[in-house]
Design a protein around this nucleic acid. Sequence first.
DNA 1: CTGAAAGCGCTAACAT
DNA 2: ATGTTAGCGCTTTCAG
Lengths: 341, 341
Amino acid sequence: MMKKNTPATLSDVAELAGVSKAVASRALSGKNRPISADKKARVCQAAELLGYVANPFAQSLANQETGLVAIVINHISNVSDLTLFDSLIQGIQSIGKQALFVRLKSLQDIDQLQKNAFIQRVDAALVLSDLIEPQLAESLFYTHNVIMLNGKSQDRGYSVKVNEALGIKDAIAYAQRIGIKRAVLIAGRQSSVNEEQRVEHYLTHLAQANIKLESSVFCDYSYDEALAYLTAANIDMSDELGIFCTSDSMAMAAVDYCQANGVTKYSSHIFGFDNTEFSRRGCYQFSTIGFDKHDFVQSIITLVKQAQSNDLSVANEHNEKRLPTKESHLIIDTQFYLNTP
Amino acid sequence: MMKKNTPATLSDVAELAGVSKAVASRALSGKNRPISADKKARVCQAAELLGYVANPFAQSLANQETGLVAIVINHISNVSDLTLFDSLIQGIQSIGKQALFVRLKSLQDIDQLQKNAFIQRVDAALVLSDLIEPQLAESLFYTHNVIMLNGKSQDRGYSVKVNEALGIKDAIAYAQRIGIKRAVLIAGRQSSVNEEQRVEHYLTHLAQANIKLESSVFCDYSYDEALAYLTAANIDMSDELGIFCTSDSMAMAAVDYCQANGVTKYSSHIFGFDNTEFSRRGCYQFSTIGFDKHDFVQSIITLVKQAQSNDLSVANEHNEKRLPTKESHLIIDTQFYLNTP
DNA sequence: CTGAAAGCGCTAACAT
DNA sequence: ATGTTAGCGCTTTCAG
């Protein structure tokens, strides 16, 4: 693989078009900078000819925008992450920016984050990891376009939250309707705020539906831990028991547990979370709670754009004081997906 | 969320340490530039105090390294992608670089790629997408550190390939041993070179094992397409039939197809590919072919480092001619994972 | 070993 | 509307 000769620069384009660098820059800037039509045409043609693409590093240096959007995640493991990441990358690319993935396995990785100069200078940051508190987010990025997606937020700033109450309520209402009287709750990571709220909702609605919570446990959303718990606890299945899981992976474990123990009519008694494809497969049939990932991502991308334009207008006003950004808190509703054969 | 005051610059550090910018730069450069011990200490201390982190955009401009590694993928959909991406990101971060994800859904997205200035200037590119030919890769990046991971490669350059012959051979040998006489092959995307080679291996070894290939089809690796095919073709299961799938998702479809048709003893007759966790779950039990993702990623990261140091040494020699890079083609072997209850 | 100065490629005043 | 100029923050000659 040969390295190409060094890429064409703006100077090359300007020279070929017979104009100054400034004119060339304006012609190609996208925005409506003052420039005569014919020169603009000449410049564009020259750029085309040379295969010119502006060096984003030089651009960043000159105009304070980087074109990078950070996606800060815990390590990837959940099956529901697949579709989410796919559309997140797509969304970010659709507004002409690049997706920079930052993976946080533990609190110790945060030290590294703080020294990561790229991260510091992204145009926006999407925080999915529950390891990051709003306060920390504030000090981690030089941009104020931080969008909290992990269920946390402060008064000022941006967040997209998922309203899980709706889906949970419907799921439990359904459970009540089919005669479920007792419940087991298999939750995810205890340290997550999302998860705390979720559990809260389950408790509330379970109580309202007169379903007795027999036991509950925090796992890490994983199949293995959930299966281990069910096996160890030797959960007694009967027609009246419902198993509520806060991830589809754990619901799969519940299905396997039932099958292993010869319980046949389990499908309508197991409730997952995330609405992954697995909830509707031949083997694994269970109901699940989820939300539209596409809507979610769209909201996020819209927010990124909006945040950035706020940013620019503030900058244009030559406002010396660093204003806190406008705030915006979007909410996406979950719904209950009934999947029984 | 308040934007911080503008980040500390090298000048700030130099001033605080009472030295020139040049000295400060050298002190912090990591490499062994000539500098007195006490000044070095003073500079480091000042940097620490100010929380200084070099601006990577300015650095890139000055020294031609960007610290970015592109991961060029097709859209994410396969369950086997989860663990792979997770360790890929981790690996890239472990050598102090950032992972830039580029998602290619179709050939049309490639146009955009060619105009993507970030992509052009990454330090290395990991190409997983089968949409990208070696020749195209050559013209897409200014670096020659392009590592082909999609089964394609040319003489010069880097690649890590997976030797799938071994696992496939063992799987078919096992099939023969348990009395399988007929086979159905459900393959993935036809346009993929990886996939072509794979099919080739299946054909060869099936023939050698005297197993008759009754039908074969190209799907897109997905559960849905595979299930649709099986249903439409109304495949006749019997003890002597083996179903070979080139993804675990499609193998899951085969399991569900069998169950739906009342076939009970299917587990040892279905063969997947990727060795995902799903092949060993209560519901879905089937054998699968796969390779160690961790080894794979390690090889890739090692190659990235090696490629870069070649790069640097070439640069240091002030070699005016653009040398083709050294070449390196690593091979990872697959193995057969027998999963039967 | 050190510092002054040039320059990476671009944009944004500021004059014209 | 256009060109000139001055940086953005850093690394790197090149003289001391």
